[in-house]
Design a protein around this nucleic acid. Structure first.
Length: 878
RNA sequence: GGGCGGUUAGCUCAGCGGUAGAGCAUCGGUCUUACAAACCGGGGGUCACUGGUUCGAUUCCAGUACCGCCCACCA
């Protein structure tokens, strides 16, 4: 027999199995049955594995493995995202160390360097995924910049452009002055900033009147082209149409009336800078105001800001302008003011809203379709609350998507311009302008938002725009597992693109997970330095243990805190599985050539009971996976295996299984225990793939790998209730005796006598048939069963499950203490009985409560009364 | 400004219309023929607060307090 160490050592076993599985092709979809598909959320090529991946991959792998064992044709498709800004910035930073600059290198050379970086250093995460045990099909690995996927991107861009849904125009965008690119709204989340609200007086021309405006951004005043007031505002009504001489720069600008102005806010008058603020831009559109750009792409003031300010950083300019206004007596008031300002989510730079010529996508029409698909349940979120509504709200209020980025790493926009500024958008690089035939074409310098290609992931990875076999088979995919932080970035956009180009939803179910936080409940980040590396955890506890711990914490989309204690507990569980199998193997002999164990029918209580428990574990785990309640699956497995199987069934089986004999009875007992164990391993496999494979191979089994063995199936027609009740009674009895022993400090070696009084025949028979178990597990040398307890001088008395118990313990009984103990128990039981009695006396309870609740209360009350009686009488014995 | 979530044992969290559970920690006892990463036994909670619905509320509803999250063009 193979060597069987006393403790589970994960490392070598994990290393052994993954390559075997991969080589044997188990990760590839096979078989004639219904496909089951998951596409992985493609991690950034720059990324390395973090706990969030470990969690999500565990769930995806558990689902994949479970479905695979259930016979589905499973495809879990892996891949990576080119991660535009992240990657470009990273490579630029590396180049900087060598004294190289991107612009000096030129576009082609830079791109070459990024590809080189990708080949050498990218894809760390893919290697790490092997350690997770992720059963992804590596033969179908994809990268968003693969030629096929790039072709899909172009196809989508061109088609949307043809339909007028993608267009080029000058609008206000979120501009990052640090990275010098435009951003989508999602990449520019608002952050609270403590600032000021400055009240500035603008003099009215040809009048002594002034109009005071309030602003948080005085530097933009140099670009003001109007002041707006509410048209019905009595304070300012008469000034509409008047002309203002803009301070510091002297430009003449009008006062306009606009209904969006809040009369209550600030001074009720707003300075309007159409080139640097979205709402001002819109006011400008309504009133035909000119745009004066005063801040450039680097965040510095332009020449149009006037020579006094030109070249200054926007924040330096702010201070200088405030000083200058104060000096001229135009600064009326300065208030502290906290407001929200967009910041680039990657670099943290405050966004500069800026008018800019960019490519946009009108997503509204696609959003309506995507909204409908969720409303009528073609795609559903799990948990449905709150994510369905979060998704719907966003889709309902969706704004045009700025898709162009001023970067070099990404899908270059397939638009070409001739000298006449005609635009040619084309699937293939055009030779001439589509409008004028000019051969002097230059391609748009910009690339697409990274998320543009991610949005196509569920079909671009399967071969679209070609109608491939994979596409027909695996689209739509089944489950998408991802975090709530990218519902808008990714999930929503896949929905829109999938429905638009495949005419079907990209996935049936979106499983939203929570965030894995550190032990203090804080979000992990490189900045904070509180990252917990899953690989360290794998080293420390074993991959299966970490997977199991993560799954056991995955409740809905709740965030979770990493708990070392959970990891330890899961590691101990793995060790428990190891040793239980070790025990069974020690008694089975060589598994080679032995067929897989079958259940040998038995009337013995323990056998009937474990079968019921196993069956209900199968039922619960199966349902838990179906309903994505991973913590419930983990919990069921843990308690079934440890409490029921190890603590009771193995212990009860030992006399036969470990007897060393070779009788039919013993062989059958061994077969049964092997059966339960082997089935349990299959049930555990989706969450703990490595250890279950290793142990399964050491047991008699059929087939080459547990990966492709059948997932356990629920049986029907077992004598559920009776077996459970009887076993519960037996367990309660044994526990009671152990309890008495423990309280009286009876050493393990000394056996006690046990007197039982049982009134009903069934219970008497039950105890009789299982008395050898009671003797062994409660360390009892002799059991006396009668209708009534005999008179005993010195004994501990108690009652459990309708059985009167007495343990004679000469010289160890302190009557006072016994009396106190029993009295305490009496008080508790009497209290409970009183509560039940008053409930049962309550007519409306008896009439309105469900029948079984009333019956249950009645039975419990009866039991209590009997037990109280018994306790009272034993009280008299002291 | 709008929306959402949380508050349960010392800690981290499940659960739920019928007087509460887990893991860890804690206390006591064990080398009992798989496992000390184990075994056996025990203690510990007025389920944030206030009302309401109900025969019955930790669970449903409303409000309060504290903590947290998301969305938003009041400058």
């Amino acid at each position: 027999m193979t060597e069987f160490p006393k403790a589970y050592e994960p490392q070598s076993i994990e290393q052994k199995w993954y390559p075997i599985w991969e080589t044997l092709g188990y990760f590839q979809p096979t078989g004639p049955n219904r496909p089951y598909t998951i596409v992985i959320p493609p991690p950034n090529v720059t990324g390395s594995l973090h706990m969030g991946h470990a969690l999500q991959h565990t769930l995806m792998d558990a689902l994949s493995r479970c479905r695979r064992m259930q016979g589905r044709r499973v495809l879990w498709l892996p891949g990576q995202d080119h991660a535009g800004i992240a990657t470009q910035v990273l490579v630029e930073r590396q180049m900087k160390a060598e004294g190289l600059k991107r612009v000096e290198l030129g576009r082609e050379e830079f791109e070459r360097r990024v590809w080189k970086w990708k080949e050498e250093s990218g894809g760390t995460i893919l290697r790490q995924m092997r350690r997770e045990g992720a059963s992804v099909d590596w033969t179908r690995e994809r990268f968003t910049l693969d030629p096929d996927l790039s072709r899909a991107v172009r196809e989508v861009f061109v088609r949307l452009h043809e339909e007028g849904l993608i267009y080029r125009g000058a609008y206000i965008v979120n501009w990052c002055p640090f990275d010098q690119t435009s951003l989508s709204d999602l990449e520019a989340p608002k952050r609270e900033v403590k600032g000021h609200l400055w009240h500035i007086a603008y003099p009215i021309k040809g009048s002594s009147e002034r109009i005071v405006v309030a602003t948080t951004r005085p530097e933009t005043m140099l670009g003001d082209t109007a002041v707006a007031v509410h048209p019905d505002d009595e304070r300012f009504k008469h000034l509409i149409g008047a002309t203002i001489a803009l301070p510091l720069i002297g430009r003449e600008i009008p006062v306009v009336g606009d209904e969006t102005v809040e009369r209550e806010f600030g001074t009720g008058a707003v300075k309007v800078t159409p080139a640097h603020d979205l709402s001002d831009f819109q006011i400008g559109q309504r009133h035909g105001l000119p745009h004066v750009v005063v801040i450039d792409q680097t965040g510095r003031m332009t020449v149009d800001a006037g020579e006094r300010y030109a070249g200054l950083d926007r924040f330096e300019a702010r201070e200088k302008i405030i000083e200058d206004l104060a000096a001229q007596g135009l600064l009326v008031k300065t208030e502290d003011y906290t407001h929200s300002v967009g910041h680039h989510d990657r670099c943290g730079t405050p966004i500069e809203p800026m008018i800019s010529l960019q490519w946009f996508m009108n997503v509204k029409p696609l959003a309506e379709v995507a909204l409908q698909a969720v409303r009528d349940g073609r795609t559903r979120f799990v948990p449905a609350v709150p994510w369905t509504r979060v998704y719907e709200d966003w889709m309902e209020n969706i704004q045009p998507w700025c898709v162009s980025r001023q970067l070099w790493w990404g899908h270059r926009i397939p638009a070409w311009y001739c000298d006449n500024e005609h635009v040619t958008v084309s699937r293939v690089d055009p030779a001439e302008c589509a409008s004028c035939g000019s051969k002097a074409l230059r391609q748009d310098e910009d690339v697409l938002d990274t998320w543009f290609s991610s949005a196509l992931w569920p079909f671009s990875t399967l071969g679209w725009p070609d109608n491939t076999e994979d596409l027909r088979q695996f689209y739509p995919t089944n489950d998408l597992v991802t975090g709530y932080e990218i519902i808008f970035f990714w999930v929503a956009r896949m929905m829109m693109m999938g429905l638009k180009f495949m005419n079907d939803v990209p996935f049936d179910t979106v499983l939203i997970t929570g965030i894995v936080r550190d032990a203090n409940g804080e979000k992990m980040s490189k900045m904070k330095g509180n990252i917990i590396d899953p690989l360290d955890q794998f080293d420390k506890f074993g991959t299966d243990a970490v997977r199991f711990a993560l799954a056991s914490m995955a409740v809905g989309s709740n965030d979770m805190t990493v708990q070392e204690s959970k990891m330890e507990s899961a590691r101990n569980f793995a060790n428990k599985i190891w040793n239980a199998t070790r025990f069974v193997c020690m008694n089975l002999g060589d598994p080679k050539g032995q067929p897989a164990a079958k259940w040998v029918p038995s009337d013995a209580l323990a056998d009937r009971w474990i079968r019921v428990k196993l069956n209900s574990a199968i039922e619960q785990v199966t349902r838990a996976f179906e309903e994505y309640r991973f913590h419930e699956a983990a919990q069921t497995l843990y308690h079934f295996f440890w409490d029921d199987f190890c603590d009771w069934y193995i212990e009860l089986s030992k006399p036969l299984v470990a007897s060393g004999e070779d009788s039919p009875e013993v062989r059958n007992a061994r077969e049964r225990i092997a059966y339960v164990l082997e089935t349990s391993l299959r049930l555990l496999h989706p969450l703990m793939p490595f250890i279950t494979e290793e142990l399964w191979q050491r047991l008699p089994h059929e087939g080459d790998s547990i990966m492709v063995a059948a997932f356990p199936i629920v049986e029907t027609g077992l004598d559920e209730a009776k077996s459970r009740e009887q076993m519960e009674t037996l367990i309660a009895l044994i526990t009671k005796v152990r309890n008495i022993r423990s309280e009286k400090n009876i050493p393990l070696q000394s056996r006690v006598k046990l007197h039982l009084a049982v009134s009903d025949k069934d219970t008497a028979a039950l105890v009789n048939e299982n008395s050898h178990h009671v003797k062994r597990l409660a360390r009892v040398e002799e059991i006396f069963i009668a209708d009534r307890l005999p008179a005993l001088e010195e004994a501990v008395r108690d009652v459990v499950g309708g059985i009167e118990v007495a343990v004679p313990l000469e010289g160890l009984i302190d009557p006072e203490k016994e009396r106190a103990r029993i009295t305490k128990e009496l008080v508790r039981k009497e209290g409970e009985a009183r509560g039940l009695a008053s409930k049962l006396d309550n007519l409306s309870f008896v009439e309105r409560a469900p029948r079984d609740v009333v019956d249950q209360a009645r039975n419990r009350h009866g039991e209590l009364i009997a037990e109280i009686e018994t306790l009272r009488s034993s009280l008299g014995k002291f």
